[in-house]
Amino acid sequence: MTLAPLSDQLAADAPGRRRPARGSGRAPGRVPIGYVFVSLYALLALAFGIVPSLYAVLLAFTNPTGGFAGVDNFVKVVGDFRFWPAVLHVTIYLIIWLTGLVIFVVALALIVHAVRVRWASTTLRFVYYLPGALAGASSVLLWLFVLDPTASPVTGLLRLMGFNSFVQVIQPGNLPTIFAIIAFWTGAGGWIVIMYGALNNISTDVIEAARIDGANTVQIAFSIQLPMLRKWIAYMGVMSLAAGTQLFVEPQLLSQASNAVVPNDYSLNQLAYQYAFQQNDFNGAAAISLILLVVALLLSWVFVTRGGLFERE
C-alpha cells in the first residue's frame, strides 16, 4: 500500500544513495550503526560471559600466589575423595532423568496432540506446564513435603512402597530418582508444550495420506511423527544434559533439610561451592567450574554448529 510508491522512489533514486538504504545502516566514513545498538549487549557479554570464563581459566591454572600451576589444580580436584562419588551421583541422576524425560515427554506430547477436543487439549497442556512456575528452591521445598510421610498428600503411596519416615525416603540410593522426579515435575511441562508445537508443524497432508494408506495412530506416531520430532528430542536431550550436570539446589536444600543425611558435597557444583566457600580455595573451585563449563560449552557448540535447529541467517 504505502510501500509501493516508496519503493518506486527508491528505484528512481541515484545509484550512489542506494547503499545506505539497503539496510546496511552504514553512513560513509562512520562506525556502522549496528555497533551502537549492540554495544551495551557486547559490554555485558564481555563482563559476565567472556571475562569471567577467561578469569576462571587463569585461576584454574595458577596457584594462590599467582604462579603458574600447570594442571596441579585439576589433579587435586580430580584426586579429591569427593570428586568421583559426585560424578557418579550426577551421572546416575542424569541417566534416570533423561530416560524418563524423553520417554514421558514424547509420549505425553503425542497423546495430547491426538486429543481432538480443543479445550481438553489446552487444559492438559496448561496443567502440565503450570509447575514450571515453581522452579528452584520453591519446588524443592514443596517436594520435601510430598516426600515426608508424616505430612505428605500421598502418604498411602509412600507407605505402600515401604517408606515410613522422611529419613527412609531420602536414603542415598533413592536420591537420583528423587531429584529426577523433582526436575521432571518442574521442567517436563515446558518441553511437552514445545513438542506439541513441533507436532503441530507437521503437515496434516502427510498424516492424512498415511491414514488413507491404512496406518493407525501408533504406526503414524512411530513412522512419521517421531522421526520428524528427532531434532527437537535431541535439543531437549542436550539442553537437559547440560542443565543436569549443574545439579545444585536440590541436593543443597535436601542436605539442609535432612540434617546432613544428604551430604553437602553430593554434586559437582556443590563440591565447587565447598572449595570456594569452605576451603577458600578459589583455584580449586575454578578448576571444577571450568570442567563443568567446558562440558556445557562443548554440548552447546556441537548443537549450534551441527544441530541445524537454530537459525543463524
Binding site: 550503526i33 576462571a56 563449563l293 560449552l297 554440548l299
Partner: peptide, 28 residues
C-alpha cells in the same frame, strides 16, 4: 537488520551462551 563485521561472531556467541545452563557461569 543491520550489517557489521562482528555480527556473525556475536550471533554464534549468543547461541552458544544461550544453550549453556545459566548456572555454569555463576562461579566464574
Amino acid at each position: 537488520l543491520t550489517e557489521f563485521r562482528l555480527r556473525n561472531p556475536l550471533l554464534v556467541m549468543t547461541l552458544v551462551v544461550m544453550l549453556i545452563p545459566g548456572t555454569a557461569l555463576v562461579l566464574p
